[in-house]
Amino acid sequence: MTMRIHVTVNGTEREVDVVESTTLLDFVRDDLHLTGTKECCDLGECGACTLLVEGRAVNSCLMLAAEVEGGEITTIEGLNENGKLSPLQDAFLAKGAVQCGFCIPGQVMAAHDLLQRNPHPTLDEVKEGLSGNLCRCGGYVQICEAVLAASEVS
């Protein structure tokens, strides 16, 4: 059995039939084919599946797709406008925050939420804001630098 949900995805209104028990993560990756959102721990511990629901960062593995009915979600694919990188995305590259890249969409979305709510965070606030996003390649230093650099641009 499926149910129809109405959701605005990266600015576009969508009507999609979804199996009721589908998680938001599976919905985004398997049904919408937006694979920038990544799957790792499936427990809400790693943050790789972070996207925005009503503008707030959430772990999409911890939500059912049905919960976003009538709402709005933004995935990593929705951040760059007309093919131009957002200042945050650009800062991640400029500061060398990106290695394998698997955690990066989640990191960028968490950082996006942080800067929306706190446009000029301190280093400690950045560390707190990103503490739900694991990275195994880097030492987090460059990721924090990137977020601070982006906060100076915006």
């Binding site: 972070t50 911890l62 707190e128």
Partner: peptide, 9 residues
């Protein structure tokens, strides 16, 4: 309680 992503939900 968890990360910000968790506390948001």
């Amino acid at each position: 309680v968890g990360s910000i992503q968790i506390r948001n939900r």
